[in-house]
Design a protein around this nucleic acid. Structure first.
Lengths: 210, 210
DNA sequence: GGTCGGATAGCAAATTTTTGCTATGCTTTT
DNA sequence: AAAAGCATAGCAAAAATTTGCTATCCGACC
């Protein structure tokens, strides 16, 4: 049904407003001649199944309503061997981006990226190269260097604190002396040089330790 | 600079890809003749400041990088008395939607809404009526019973606590007596019946209050 | 014109957290 | 064998948080 095999894009994003809008963007700047957008997985897969072996570029949202875009990769590969998959995500977590990268999709883009980055990505992918948003590259680099190491045990305790457990409660649940719990807190707080448990938890969340 | 005073729309969303794309959508369907999109607060405010008393429709993302769209409301009102503000959010939490509703913006839309809902919203807002996405209305109905409500001020303080600020630090930053900060903490902790600030923060995070 | 809720503020006491300093047993690494 | 790191535990003092009780001002609502 289509003659030019590098001009078809498909978008799947459960935010319909974004899916529809983004398809207009791809068309307007001549990035693709034909763009189809979906906000429901089922419709998307049905379309994909009908696309045969046609070359196709898929823009996949990472966060779907019930699952992540990652879980669709095997299905996509099964339905169309010539599909290129580019992830779009609003995530900011180095850990999540690393996970995404491990799946080795054709592209990974931040939803905060600009038009130039989008174009660079497409240029790479069209040459069968993989592309990752420079913003995410930086995020991963910074994550390596800033690494404050918590031990497994410390992280275990940290999770309790983050759930709201006090020192006494944590000690009780883990069959420890409250002194021990205090000692663990103290050690972690020293590592990041902070003065209260909320600061520690905030740090841990921001750095995806827990 | 513009003659038709109901045709200017402004978008603020830190996901540049969405902001740019959505502006195309608004134009394409003739919903507005002029659309301006921003992915940075500062640029947005600068533009707003230059708009004088011109009638203007603002599409505001709830989740901005460092704050929520809510915190911009006073500034928006100060800069342009004739601005209509419509929130766009991908949130699914009844509590958060209720909070949003308490601020009484002109419109509240889900990013998952369809074109018809967007059009209905605009029709209402243009008649000076307030609009809330039917999807959110339903969400709230199903939730009336368990609703714990935090006031805008409480949420503001909560955000400081969640970032690790102590009572003293929060008081200092907000130019309050530490007694007042304590009073706010106390009130919130009473609402959810907990005994420590970490429990309060955990609750707030789980219910997407912050 | 009164009541209610929100934001502000205070005092005193009870409780919890944080800090300074120390210590033991157990692995892993050097 | 020594050193380094981890998990455990303790005491005492300082600091911060939590709780019980009270109070004023203001705007909204009936």
């Amino acid at each position: 049904m289509l003659t030019n095999d590098s001009q078809l894009a498909v978008i799947l994003d459960d935010h319909g407003l974004f899916a529809t809008s983004f398809s207009l963007l791809l068309e307007k700047y001549g990035l693709f001649h034909f763009v189809k957008s979906f906000d429901r997985k089922d419709d998307f897969l049905r379309f994909l199944a009908s696309s045969g072996t046609q070359k196709i570029y898929i823009f996949l949202d990472y966060y779907l309503s019930e699952e992540t875009g990652l879980s669709l990769l095997p299905e996509i590969d099964r339905l169309n061997k010539n599909a290129k998959t580019i992830f779009l995500t609003s995530a900011l977590s180095p850990l999540l981006i690393q996970t995404l990268k491990n799946y080795n999709p054709d592209g990974i883009l931040s939803k905060s990226c600009n038009l130039d980055t989008l174009k660079s990505c497409l240029a790479s992918v069209r040459l069968d190269q993989h592309f990752i948003d420079p913003f995410f590259e930086k995020l991963l680099e910074n994550h390596q260097s800033t690494a404050v190491r918590f031990t497994p045990r410390e992280i275990e305790l940290l999770k309790h604190f983050a759930r709201g457990d006090t020192i006494a409660k944590t000690a009780e649940k883990l069959f420890l002396s409250s002194h021990t719990v205090v000692a663990h807190r103290r050690k972690m707080m020293a590592k990041i040089n902070c003065q209260s448990i909320t600061q520690l938890i905030t740090f841990a969340r921001e750095h995806e330790v827990i």
